[in-house]
Design a binder for these strands. Structure first.
Lengths: 196, 196
DNA sequence: TGAATTTTGGTGCAATCGCTCCAGAATTAC
DNA sequence: GTAATTCTGGAGCGATTGCACCAAAATTCA
């Protein structure tokens, strides 16, 4: 009973992800977004509501396509401790390939927008908590499987792993090399137990 | 042979530090700065050259008054491994008191401006490297003093400590509680050897 | 086909951006 | 005192910001 949308919402959303990811929230203008998404300003407001509302959708899409996809894939194909190892190794590899050092949209947002917008802050925190839950789940399973020492505190180690991941993301953003990123992570992986 | 400056440059610089610190580089306008510094726009440009040039001065002042002061004070009053412990403990304490979660200006800048401005990026990296040098120096001394296990790789551990510090700063920015920040740090401190 | 509804590109608004210019005030050298 | 020099507040530059509005285009239901 109305005119059909001419653009593909998912494709447009992907373009918006790239836009916010490489420029940050504040530095990205609605005109940048519209141009990159291949739509007019009116369509953007009509379809997504505005800059902030679009960013909420972007965070959700990023979490789905980047974080959750990786977690599901690695958790399905690896033993618990190896899933964590592979997760961090993959982040290192991607960070090194990431020429313009975009880093992780969630981490960037945690420092950029979260402190100035309580709502977005809660969203970012929830996504980071999903990553920690992945760590925690697999540390527990690794202990159960005998891969990780019995006395290990899974809760504490999962927090440590999240912190190490955040730190690596920050240093990667400054252009750190592989040996630096690996040195950040290695002691945390040692706590998981020596890989077979 | 000319009119004297009416404002105190150091006081104005401190105000500029607070401004950039709490709002970030992009989100801080020259008008914000001038108002908070208690000077006119023309004076700001006359004395500091512009927004970016002022930010360079701000980074330097922050490094002097925050990072370097802390390093010098703790290094003078503690045994090597205790200096590192006290450094991280102090960061945790200040992060928890920091109601508006400003975090660390250097870390915020590492994610905000460094990737989009090579010059500022190098400056930020250099300041972070000073912190790592503090870690490295004291890990080596701690090994020498028998506080830290002999086999420890001081270079690698100093990088790990820097990464853990960055990670803690990110999580603190999202409003993390004490037990979270301490869980991030504790495994790294364990590598320093048990405190006497 | 005509009414209803939504999307579309374009235009434009009020506000703000970093920055510049200017006239006047203040200070020192002469 | 006079000339020279610098600092000061204020006004204003062109550009850009997020967003609103509009008429035309497109589509479905009647």
């Amino acid at each position: 009973m109305a005119r059909l949308r001419e653009f593909d919402e998912d494709r447009a959303l992907d373009a918006a992800v790239d836009c916010f990811w490489s420029r940050g929230y504040e530095a990205t203008s609605v005109r940048d977004l519209a141009r990159e998404m291949g739509i007019g300003g009116a369509s953007l407001y009509n379809a997504f509501g505005g800059k902030r509302a679009l960013f909420v959708r972007v965070l959700e899409r990023y979490a789905n396509r980047s974080t959750r996809e990786r977690i599901a894939r690695l958790e399905a194909g690896h033993r618990p401790s190896e899933a964590i190892r592979a997760f961090l190794a993959e982040v290192i590899d991607r960070s090194l390939k990431d020429r313009d050092c975009k880093g992780c949209l969630l981490v960037n947002s945690a420092l950029d927008v979260a402190p100035h917008d309580a709502g977005l802050g809660r969203a970012v925190t929830a996504y980071l908590e999903e990553i920690r839950a992945f760590f925690r789940r697999n540390v527990e399973a690794a202990i159960e499987a005998g891969e990780t020492p019995r006395g290990t505190d899974a809760e504490a180690l999962s927090i440590h792993l999240l912190g190490v991941l955040m730190g690596m993301r920050v240093l990667a953003r400054t252009g750190a090399r592989r040996h630096t990123l690996e040195a950040v992570v290695r002691p945390a992986l040692d706590l998981l137990g020596s890989p077979q």
